[in-house]
């Protein structure tokens, strides 16, 4: 058996990371092939842009904070006010743009908290089995037995209306979904030969969980997070619509529609545009999530 020349210099960056580079190229290629995924990416990117630079690019930023111009109330869409004005005379477009930041914040918080609670619980439940799993899964099933919006409604009714309570309630509704997903994935990864192999070379449970189980659970979790951000924004807007979420003058999209409802049907634009904003944002995240799911699907690797 020959000895290779160990005095060879270390191969360059491209050489060492050739595998990762190819993997990213494949991801991008698969994403680009799908029109819907690209559309989702564009919408989400636009939404993130609005969230980041909203107050700077809104035409009437002070309107978003509740400025009152009673002389301009309820005007239809025009050159000065692309989306018209609301009952306080505030520019609806500006309020929608600034509202993007609130929605993003809500979506990230809800899914972030839910994932931080749910993923570790799921891995532990899946790996340990026995009593631990039984207890965790029973609790998860219990929370999942109550339909989401109803549970959130009950929690917010108890805690009192407001954005913070809305986020807490929805995070409590969302965490069990992650436990279910991760527990199922952990159960199947646990049976893989490489886990047995790791045990045979002396790996202990924490090592296996961190190095083998978690990385293999990541793809479905990432897809779920991307899909959930959209749905969380929708749920928060729904609670806002009922009147239990954000309070005026906060430019949260759902709350805006709630107020707008009393001005139907004559001033229809007031309900139309915020709803459109919600729809497009959720659509964007859903499309992106679908695209991510396609690129993580191992079958697409062979193409």
């Amino acid at each position: 058996m020959s000895q290779q020349d160990t005095s060879l210099e270390r191969p360059g960056f491209r050489e060492r990371h050739a595998s990762q580079i190819r993997m990213w190229r494949l991801y991008i290629h698969t994403l680009r092939k799908s029109f819907t995924s690209m559309l989702g990416l564009v919408i989400v990117a636009f939404f993130l842009f609005l969230a980041a630079f909203g107050p700077q690019i809104a035409p009437y930023p002070e309107d978003a904070a509740g400025a009152i111009h009673m002389s301009q109330r309820l005007m239809p869409p025009s050159a000065e006010h692309w989306f018209g004005t609301d009952e306080m005379g505030a520019d609806i477009l500006s309020r929608i743009i600034v509202g993007a930041r609130i929605s993003l914040w809500i979506g990230l918080l809800i899914t972030g908290i839910a994932a931080l609670i749910g993923v570790p619980l799921g891995i532990i439940a899946g790996y340990r089995g026995g009593w631990t799993r039984a207890v965790i899964m029973r609790l998860t099933d219990l929370f999942l037995s109550v339909p989401g919006l109803v549970l959130a409604l009950a929690i917010v009714a108890s805690l009192g209306p407001g954005i913070t309570n809305c986020v807490i309630a929805l995070a409590l509704v969302w965490w069990p979904g992650y436990v279910r997903l991760v527990e199922a994935k952990t159960l199947s990864v646990k049976e893989e030969l490489f886990v047995e192999s790791a045990r045979s070379i002396g790996a202990k449970t924490p090592w296996i969980l961190w190095h083998h189980i978690l990385p293999n659970c990541l793809s479905p979790v990432i897809v779920k997070i991307s899909l959930d951000i959209g749905m969380a924004i929708l749920a928060a807007a729904s609670l806002g619509f009922i009147g239990l979420g954000a309070r005026p003058p906060s430019p949260e999209w759902g709350a805006m529609i709630s107020v707008a409802r009393s001005y139907m049907p004559d001033w229809w634009w007031y309900s139309f545009f915020p709803g459109m904003a919600i729809f497009l944002t959720v659509l964007g995240f859903n499309l992106l999530g679908d695209g991510l799911r396609d690129i993580f699907d191992p079958r697409s690797r062979d193409r």
Partner: peptide
Amino acid sequence: VRIFSISGVAIPAFWLGILMQLYFSVH
């Protein structure tokens, strides 16, 4: 059908309801 199904999940139910009222009932 795919576009329809993806939109169907994303559309806020309350917004859709208001729009349908606007069109089918009022208009």
